[in-house]
Design a protein around this nucleic acid. Structure first.
Length: 727
RNA sequence: GGGCGUUUAGCUCAGUGGUUAGAGCGCUACAUUCACAUUGUAGAAGUCGCUGGUUCGAAUCCAGCAACGCCCACCA
């Protein structure tokens, strides 16, 4: 059969993805049924990190899909029962803000103008649209996901898992409600978890002033307007300058009534900074709150959830913080209290979603206690016996420290431990509407935890859960938990988690926490982290820079196979990579080269008998041996997650050995009837095994070639061909 | 402030103690009715960041330094 002169990706991609879906082999149950998977072999399971339903997929998603599909197709060709679960994430804050922005741009309305129900309807519509686009894009990449098991963090089953998880952790005493300093985003009007806060370098003014003329110690601050909430003045215990004042109490008036300021000594004060004295504002600073706790100081809230001054601040009440700062500094000057104004660089904390500066506030919120002891009933965790006491932090640390979970590349284990060691309680309540509404009900000071109210008089907590709480259940909520399903027994813990290093804390660590707590087990055995896909200059791709390369664009211009290769080759695990259209084009040339290699072989083997076993020459043997050596090397690279080297070896071999040397040398031998049959055998077998080795990387072109090969026995699809070498 | 990483050809990157350091892209010259011009052949191009050490031998191991990048951290 003769192939067309140039490979046409579009045609193959359309045709073969349909064939694969129809075959059912994406589903391990079908593979077992039809004999394509060996039930006695170790299962391979992987969850797709669910993309956010905030829009469309970018090159980072494409790279993730390429890597995971390589691993999954390889496992499947090993004959292992292989499950890759697809799904999407509702991404609470991200999605809600996106719809809010649209609503404001298009209709100048806020979510409050629509009301909770109507607004949520809009968000759901938007999410559905994004979902459909995303699924289409995933399929375009050739990802071999089991669509029969598709999940969504906010669908019925995942929601009931989320509520069940909350209830169990509440009963274990690990979820509690508390009044604590939280990271408050005034724009989102919601709390944020510690790791949802980012830092931005800015220039700030450091004001040095005295509370009053008779207070002997000046303080320095960049937030003078918070000083109405000060209840102490802290100095270092060793600081000789201030030792004599320790314990004194001053009554001051900053223009909003009397305040008592006690001079205290605390180790946490840096005597080198500013005047070496710190105004303690327990209500608006985490560190001050800790000092206040140690010294039993009262806490006065002077800024509210809207970022305005509270009633307590008298003439300043109702003013936005910036305005209050301006007026208060002017007042300090008038009073002759201001000693110095100084420009300093400062890292301010901002919301990771909208960039608005964070306002630390005391607030009544739900938390997960990471240091609290609890009894782990059934434990599969090394070093923690069933029924023994542990803490979430200990559990998270142990599974990695004892190598029950391996993180690759290894350097990220250090980052992980560093994070665990600094971990504080996780604030999981959010004051937004889109998401899982907290399953807690109130009536006359009583609390009931459950998905449904015991009777109609109970009022539900209006807040929703942090999106990472539900996605943290992903490895088991997708398998049917809290029900004890066959899927859960068969596929959990999952074999591998493959994701970007940027969500190591957000997601990976949370999955370890929640799986450990709720199942007493690890969620996955290995974590493989990939880096960011940047533009050709190494800049982050972003709409505002106009340097975004769209995966669908690349696929339609150069094909999915070329796009996949361009995201794999030259990309070291865990490090960022650079992508240019030129690189994609280069791999398009390769798919075409492969196509023409096949065209040549097929043209030379029209009279080839696949059942014959011709006598091979020494040269023939040598060529086959060289191929086998390469095939083993490729296999070892895949086993070691070195996909960049595996793909490169195949590229080198096929182009510069097989095409440039073997095929060229074969031309005379094919013309000679004495050597023709043996050479045909050599070419067909190397080509057949090569497309199998390449199939995980470039599934479409290899399927197209496979379907045309003159083989004695052929499967329905190359996808279920056994891997041609073992190591 | 703490931690992590990177530094090899113009560009992107391989190469974890052993002969003259490799690939892709780019560049130069030549070829071409041949499976493929989305091609082939040949070629130019590197004091392997710097300094010192270990060794018969170092891009590779060790120490120090430098530049760049990233992560964590509420010097208020």
């Amino acid at each position: 059969m003769e192939l067309p002169k140039h490979y046409n990706p579009e045609e193959s991609e359309e045709k073969y993805y349909k064939l694969w879906e129809k075959s059912g082999f994406f589903n391990p149950d079908v593979c077992k049924e039809k004999g394509a998977a060996d039930p006695s072999k170790e299962v391979f399971s992987l969850v797709l990190p669910p993309p956010n339903v905030t829009g469309t997929l970018h090159m980072g998603h494409a790279a993730m899909l390429a890597i995971e599909d390589i691993i999954v197709r390889y496992a499947r060709m090993q004959g292992r029962p292989t499950l890759w679960i697809p799904g999407t994430d509702h991404a609470a804050i991200a999605t809600q803000s996106k719809v809010e922005r649209q609503l404001y741009e298009q209709e100048q309305k806020t979510r409050h103008d629509l009301g909770r129900e109507e607004f949520l309807k809009r968000v759901r519509e938007f999410a559905q649209g994004s979902h459909d686009t995303i699924i289409h894009q995933i399929k375009k990449m050739g990802a071999s996901l089991d669509w029969s098991r598709q999940a969504y963090t906010l669908d019925e089953q995942r929601s009931s898992a989320t509520y069940a998880a909350f209830k169990r952790m509440y009963e274990l005493g690990l979820i509690y409600r508390g009044n604590r300093i939280v990271n408050w985003c005034p724009r989102c009007s919601s709390t944020l978890a510690d790791d949802e806060v980012e830092y931005k370098e800015t220039n700030a003014v450091l004001y040095t002033f005295r509370y009053a003329k008779d207070v002997p110690i000046a303080i320095s601050t960049t937030r003078p307007e918070t000083k109405f909430g000060d209840t102490a003045l802290a100095v270092h215990p060793e600081d000789k300058r201030y030792r004599e004042y320790s314990g004194k109490v001053y009554t001051i008036n900053l223009g909003a009534g009397d305040q008592e300021i006690r001079v205290i000594a605390d180790e946490s004060v840096d005597s080198e900074f500013g005047t070496g004295a710190l105004g303690v504002t327990p209500a608006h600073s985490q560190i001050d709150a800790e000092i206040a706790q140690r010294h039993n100081l009262p806490s006065l809230q002077v800024i509210n959830e809207k970022g305005e001054m509270t009633e307590r601040t008298g003439p300043y009440a109702g003013l936005p913080v910036k305005e209050a700062r301006k007026r208060f500094v002017a007042w300090l000057k008038e009073q002759g209290l201001l000693e110095r104004e100084q420009q300093i660089p400062q890292n301010i904390s901002v919301c990771y979603r909208c960039g608005t500066p964070i306002e630390p506030l005391p607030s009544l919120q739900w938390f997960i206690a990471v240091n609290k002891e609890f009894v782990l009933k059934h434990s599969q965790i090394t070093g923690i016996a069933s029924g023994s006491q542990t803490t979430l932090k200990e559990l998270m640390r142990k599974v990695v420290a004892q190598k029950q979970i391996t993180i690759l590349p290894e350097q990220f284990e250090k980052t992980y431990f560093h994070w665990i060691d600094n971990l504080r309680d996780w604030c999981i309540s959010r004051q937004i509407w889109f998401g899982h509404q907290i399953p807690v009900w109130y009536k006359n000071g009583e609390i009931f935890v459950g998905e449904k109210a015991p009777s109609p008089e109970w009022r539900r907590d209006p807040d929703t859960l942090d999106t990472w709480f539900s996605s943290g259940l992903w490895t088991f909520s997708t398998l049917g938990w809290p029900k004890d399903t066959d899927d859960l027994k068969t596929y959990h813990p999952t074999t591998l988690l493959e994701t970007g290093y940027d969500i190591l804390f957000f997601w990976v660590a949370r999955m370890i926490l929640l799986s450990g707590c709720l199942l007493g087990d690890i969620p996955f055995k290995t974590v493989y982290l990939h880096g960011l896909v940047r533009d050709e200059k190494g800049k982050k791709m972003s709409k505002s820079l106009g340097n975004v390369i769209d995966p669908l664009d690349m696929i339609s211009k150069y094909g999915a196979d070329a796009t996949r290769l361009s995201l794999i080759v030259g990309v070291a695990p865990g490090s960022d990579s650079k992508l240019s259209e030129n690189k994609v084009r280069g791999y398009k040339y390769f798919t075409n080269k492969l196509w023409n290699i096949s065209r040549f072989v097929l043209m030379q083997t029209e009279d080839y008998d696949p059942k014959a076993t011709p006598q091979l020459s020494r040269e023939d043997e040598k060529i086959l041996q060289e191929f086998r050596a390469m095939a083993q090397e490729v296999t070892r690279h895949i086993e070691g997650y070195r996909f960049y080297l595996a793909a490169d070896s195949l590229y080198q071999y096929l182009w510069h050995t097989f095409a440039d040397k073997v095929l060229e040398d074969s031309k005379p031998l094919l013309k000679d009837s004495a050597t023709r049959a043996a050479r045909q055998y050599v070419l067909v077998s190397i080509l057949a095994d090569s497309v199998k080795l390449l199939h995980p990387f470039t599934p479409f072109v290899t399927e197209a070639i496979y379907q045309n090969l003159p083989l004695a026995e052929k499967k329905e699809t190359i996808m279920i061909e056994p891997w041609p070498v073992s190591i």
